[in-house]
Design a protein around this nucleic acid. Structure first.
Length: 604
DNA sequence: CCCCCCCC
């Protein structure tokens, strides 16, 4: 049986604020209960908070587990009756309550019985009872603590203990900040500082910037508006540590940040910021990594932290923003992790241009945004941080795994899904035979369904394979021949000549059956190797040559990604299969896939 | 008080 540090619970409950620091570590306690407190947002584990009742065998008190220790609960490392040594804690005085936060601990033993018959410590006039933090939205902490003895405690009046810590400052852990307290100072590292951004909408206009502030207990986002931008923007430097006080604590909007904090700071005109040169106790960066396999559980537009091996570095490209018409450099990376998933991650601007990691580097990303194009994608945003080969445990683990066995692995991509067209590589997991597509009635429900298939073109309806389209980039609407020119109703413009685009219907077959697929411009280009304009011109000029072209296209095999969807035409409802992607067979890839199949568990 | 972050 373990020896507990009897007396510590009572002391934690009674010690004045300035003495708590001396109680901060080395105590052996038993965890009587670990309970998740009401989460503030739906399903993410990132925001879970655990309330723990710790016992010294005589008394028990409540504490919160710092969120960076949540894994201990998730992994089952700590449990009811686990005996641990608290290596670090912080106590935080909130109005008439005190809030104990366990910052670090290690397990002494697990399979223990409950030790002793601990009771709630006697209440004292001088010491506030431990706070119960229910959730971000609770405006008043619950006065009750649950316990095996069924006792409850009433909140005690809060004695105003004087500020402690360096130079008369009361340094609070970020984790303990809440709107219900003033006179705090945090000591935090700026891990990220945004550009100054301006906005203009119905409610007005202005400018702002964000910083991410971090200490050993947690992190919080700070925002400064307008005049505060002028005041503080230059003062903050990424990587430096500051004492910050007199900022307002507001509820955070979770959708726009994955920081583990229910609150954020509004930096005000009178907010005090002073650089602190003693920085050793403040860690450099905090991550809350999610596995790539679990990205589908996150909603679009959430942000997350991921760490992966950069398996592919795409070429530098650029896109033209539809909203602003500006061109923006971009580069796609494909990253993979130990969950054996891969995902595309897009870099923008300078980061896209200057990306220069070695092949197969481990790269950590903080605060990247989740997209749902063809499944799941990730994108850097202004508040994201990319760190190449970071010196952190997760990076070393991943490095070792990848170099050891990861190289040989196949990675599942996030490109199936039912949310959009297929992207990138051909998705073999959605591979169906044509008979299977029909038998399983894909597309017979109300929503579109997606599948891939390898099939051979048997016949192309050759009477009409293209239409005259508007040449405006991205319009593609059919234009009307006015005799004097071609008019686009949508663009309200007349053009000297149209740009033909493919629209074709073709019969394809595999060993199991056949189907009619609808193909558009991309499909025509792949099948004929010519633009629709060129083929149109051939058709006008030389019927025999056109027919030869059609004949040539038959008998060729492609991989198709298709969208199956019901539609009704002339009172007849049927499923149509649209080609969303078509690729020529790459025999090397096909053979590799066959080898993978042979190696897969169900082939053994 | 922002929360846009672009394209397929």
């Amino acid at each position: 049986m373990s020896q507990l540090s009897s007396g510590i619970c009572r002391r934690l409950n009674e010690a004045p604020q300035e003495e708590i620091d001396q109680l901060a570590s080395g105590h052996t306690v038993q965890l009587l209960s670990i309970k998740k407190v009401a989460p503030t947002s739906s399903s993410t584990t990132a925001t879970d908070r655990f309330r723990i009742i710790i016992s010294d065998g005589v008394h028990f008190v409540q504490a919160m587990l710092a969120t960076q220790l949540n894994d201990l609960v998730a992994n089952g490392d700590i449990n009811k009756n686990t005996v641990v040594v608290i290596d670090k804690l912080a106590c935080n005085f909130v109005q008439d309550k005190r809030l104990i936060i366990i910052l670090d601990l290690h397990v002494v033993s697990r399979d223990e019985e409950k030790i002793g018959a601990p009771t709630a410590p006697p209440s004292t006039q001088d010491a506030p009872a431990p706070a119960v933090v229910e959730a971000a939205s609770s405006s008043v902490a619950s006065p009750a603590i649950s316990s095996s003895t069924g006792q409850t405690k009433q909140p005690q009046p809060q004695p105003r203990t004087g500020p402690s810590g360096r130079g008369g400052r009361s340094v609070y852990p970020i984790e303990g900040l809440s709107p219900y307290q003033n006179n705090w100072t945090i000591k935090a590292r700026v891990t990220q500082k945004s550009e100054i951004r301006t906005w203009s909408n119905q409610r007005g206009e202005g400018k702002l910037f964000n910083v991410t502030l971090m200490d050993e207990s947690g992190e919080i986002r700070g925002t400064g508006f307008n005049a505060v931008v002028d005041e503080l923007y230059e003062k903050f430097e990424e990587g430096k540590v500051y004492y910050i006080s007199k900022a307002r604590v507001n509820l955070a909007k979770k959708k726009f940040s994955n920081l583990q904090n229910d609150y954020e700071l509004s930096l005000e005109k009178n907010t005090e910021v002073e650089e602190c040169l003693e920085t050793t106790s403040v860690p450099m960066m905090k991550y809350n990594f999610v596995e790539l396999s679990s990205l589908e559980k996150l909603e679009k537009d959430n942000t997350c932290d991921v760490i992966g091996v950069v398996k592919e570095v795409g070429p530098l490209g650029e896109i033209t923003s539809k909203a602003t018409n500006r061109t923006i450099p971009k580069r796609d990376l494909t990253i993979v992790d130990m969950s054996q998933y891969s995902v595309r991650l897009t870099l923008w601007g300078k980061q896209a241009e200057q990306f220069a990691a070695d092949d197969l580097s481990v790269v950590a990303f903080k605060g990247v945004k989740v997209g749902d194009f063809g499944g799941r994608t990730l994108s850097m945003v202004s508040s994201s941080i990319m760190s190449i080969s970071p010196d952190i445990e997760e990076a070393h683990l991943l490095r070792g795994w990848y170099d050891g066995i990861g190289t040989e692995k196949n990675f599942q991509s996030h490109t199936s899904g039912s949310s959009g067209a297929s992207f990138g590589g051909f998705n073999r997991n959605e591979m169906r035979h044509l008979s299977d597509v029909k038998e399983s009635q894909l597309g017979m429900s109300d929503k579109a369904e997606f599948f891939s298939t390898r099939a051979t073109i048997m016949h192309i309806k050759s009477e009409s394979i293209s239409y005259p389209a508007c040449p405006t980039q991205g319009c593609n609407k059919k234009v009307v021949d006015l005799g004097s020119g071609w008019k686009c109703e949508k663009c309200d413009k007349t053009f000297e000549r149209p740009e033909h685009r493919y629209i074709m219907s073709m019969a394809v077959a595999d060993w199991s059956g056949q189907a009619w697929l609808q193909g558009f411009n991309e499909a025509g280009l792949a099948v004929f190797g010519k633009t629709a304009d060129e083929v149109h011109e051939i058709k006008e000029r030389n019927e025999a040559e056109y027919n030869a072209l059609m004949a040539q296209a038959s008998g060729v095999t492609f991989n198709f990604s298709c969208r199956a969807k019901q539609d009704t035409y002339n009172d007849q409802t049927r499923v149509r299969y649209g080609i969303s992607r078509i690729t020529s067979l790459d025999y090397r890839e096909e053979a590799k896939h066959l080898v993978d199949l042979l190696k897969s568990p169900w082939a053994q």
